[in-house]
Design a protein around this nucleic acid. Sequence first.
DNA 1: CTGGATTATGTTAGCGCTAACACGCCGCAC
DNA 2: GTGCGGCGTGTTAGCGCTAACATAATCCAG
Lengths: 342, 342
Amino acid sequence: MVEPAANRTLAATRRAPSMQDVAEIAGVSHQTVSRVLNGHASIRPETRERVEAAIAELGYRRNLAARTLATSRSRSIGVLSPAVPQFGVTSSLLAVEAAIREAGYQPLVTAAAVEHAASVDGLEFLLDQSIEALVVIAPHASVTRAIDELKIDLPLVALQAPDGVIGQAIGVDHSSGTRLATEHLVALGHRRIQHVSGPAHYFEAVSRRAGFDDAVRDAALEPLPIIEGDWTAVGGHAAAAVLAPGVTAVVCANDQTAIGLMAGLEAAGQRVPDDVSVTGFDDIPEAPYLRPGLTTVRQDFDAIGRAAVDALVRRLAGSEAAAVERLRAELVVRASTAPPRN
Amino acid sequence: MVEPAANRTLAATRRAPSMQDVAEIAGVSHQTVSRVLNGHASIRPETRERVEAAIAELGYRRNLAARTLATSRSRSIGVLSPAVPQFGVTSSLLAVEAAIREAGYQPLVTAAAVEHAASVDGLEFLLDQSIEALVVIAPHASVTRAIDELKIDLPLVALQAPDGVIGQAIGVDHSSGTRLATEHLVALGHRRIQHVSGPAHYFEAVSRRAGFDDAVRDAALEPLPIIEGDWTAVGGHAAAAVLAPGVTAVVCANDQTAIGLMAGLEAAGQRVPDDVSVTGFDDIPEAPYLRPGLTTVRQDFDAIGRAAVDALVRRLAGSEAAAVERLRAELVVRASTAPPRN
DNA sequence: CTGGATTATGTTAGCGCTAACACGCCGCAC
DNA sequence: GTGCGGCGTGTTAGCGCTAACATAATCCAG
C-alpha cells in the first residue's frame, strides 16, 4: 500500500474507482492495469498480483462505456423478442441467450410489444448499444418491416421468419411439423381432417398451415376450410363450435389451441380421441399431463438457438453466410389421437 | 440480406458517422448538433432544420457509449430474471420491462440460469452497463446471496424475495393467495386438505406454504404432511401417488403442479372435483380450459411491475424508499373445486 | 561485451460525446 | 449613445478506456 486508506477514500469521493485509481494504489500505470485486466502476456507475476490486490481492495469494475468507446466493439449481440409469455417464444429466447453467452458474447435482450411502435423503440436502443449482431424472433411482417426500415447494417439472423424476408433465416421447418402430424392422422385412417391455424399474419401460422395443406393434398383428402385461431386456448375453444360436419381429426397450430379445442369438444359432448383426434404443436411441458395426453410436435429450441448464434459468430469472424438452415421437427404421439371409430 | 462482398468490405471500412460529421455538413459546431439532439431551447429554427437534415442525410445515430461515458448516466434499469419459460416468471419480466419503458428508462434484461454461476455473469454484465437501478426477480436464496456478495450499490427492488433479504421487496402476498384458496376449500366443507408445495428453497414456495398452514391452523384442521413438488406437472403427477389417506382437497403451489396432480388422480381412478378438489396458483391462460376448469389464484403482474419500477424511479429521484408493498392476490373459482361427497 | 531481440512497463493520443465557459450580437432601459 | 442582460453559437476540457508507440531493463548470440 502506497498511501493510507483514509487519503484514498477522501480523494475518491463518491466516484466509482477508475483504472487510474487502481494504478495509483498498485504503483503502476493505468495501462498496466488495463493489461492485467485483458490478460496480456508480458506482465510480471508480482505486478499482476499487486494490481489484482488493488482491484479487489477498491472493488474496481471497469467501465464498459469507456471500453466500448475506445474499441468500438461491445462483444454483445442483441436479441429482439416479441413480448408474449408463451412457451415457444420464451424457450427460443432463453436458448438464444444461452447460446450467445456460450459463444463468449453478451446477450442484450429487448422484448417488445411487436404489434406496436414500441418494438422499434427497443430495437433502436439495442442498436445504440453498439451491438455487433442481432437475433430477431420475428413472428410476423410488422416486425420485419420495422427492421427493414431501419436499414440495419449488421449480421442478422431471423428465427421464425421465412427466408429472404430479413437477414438469414434459421429455425424449425414448421411445415414439416404439421405435415408429420397430419400424416400421422391419415395413417390412422382419418379422411376428414381440419386445421385450426394461427393468425394469418404470423409467418409460423402460414408455414404450419402449408404443411397441413401439403399433407392433405398428398393424401388426396377433401380440403376443408381452415379455421383461423389466435394461438390461445380461447381461440381453440371457439373453433370447436365451427368444425365442419363429420370431421374426425383436427390439427391445431399449437398446444394452447389444442387445449381450448379439446375443452370445447368435450363441452359439446364429443370425446377425444374417441370422436375426434386432436394434435398440437410445441410440446409444452404440460402436454403429457393433459387429458388425454396431447399428441404434438416438438422442436429443439436449444439447437435452433445454437444454430442462430453459430451463424452469427461465423459471420462476425468474416465467413460467408451459410445456407438457410431448417431443422426438423419431431412428432410425439400420445393419447389424443386414435383411429376414427367405424 | 446477403450482400455482395464488395459492399461488405465497404461497410467495414466506413466508420459510423459522428456528431462532427453531422456538424460539418450542417455548417455548425458539433456542440450545436448535440444541443439539437438534446432538445436544447436556444437554437434558431433554421439551424435546427439544417442539423436535422444533415442527421437524416447521414443516417446518423448517436453513440450511446460516448454519451454514457460523458454523462455517467445510462438512463437504463437492469432486470435480472431466472431463465425458465414459465408463465409467472415471464409475465413478471414483461410487466417490469414495459413499466421501465413507460417510466422513460430503458430496460436491460438478463435471464440467467439462476441455479448456477451463470447468474452472476449476466448480472455483472448488467452492472458494467452502468445501469442506474436494478430489478431482480429473485426466486430463491442462491440469487439473493450472489447479489449480496457483489455489494451492489444501486437502488434495488426484489420481486418475489421476502422483505429484508435484498433491496426493497415488492410483489404479491403469496401467503394470502394460498390462504384464500384453502379457506375456499374449508368453506366448501373440506376437512382433510393437503398441500403440494414448490421446492423448499424457493421463497415463493415458502410463503405459499405459510398461507396454507395458517388457514389450516385457523380452521383447526388436522395438519397433514406437505408434499414437496417442483413447480412442474411432473411433480404434481408424482404427488398424486403419495396423498394422505382420506384427503378430499389439494392446494397446489402452482397451476402446472395442479395439472399434473389432476392427471395423476384421474389415472388412479379418482375424479376431480367429485372425489378430490384441486386448486392451483397463477391462473395461466389455459386454466379455464383444463378439464375441469381450474380454481386458482391470480396475481396482477402488471401492477407488480409498475409498483417495482415506481419505487425505483422514486428513489432515483432522491426520495426515501417507500414501505414494503404487498399486493393482494385474487381467488378465481372454477370447476375443480366442489363440496366433498362423504 | 556488444548489438539486437525480447520483456516489462510508461506515455500519449484519441474514441464520440456533454458540460462549462467564452464570445459575439442584438434589443432595450437609461 | 452607453451599458447590460439575454440569445445563439463556438471552444475547450474531460469522461475512462485501449492502441500504438516509446522507453528501460534484461537476455543471449556472435
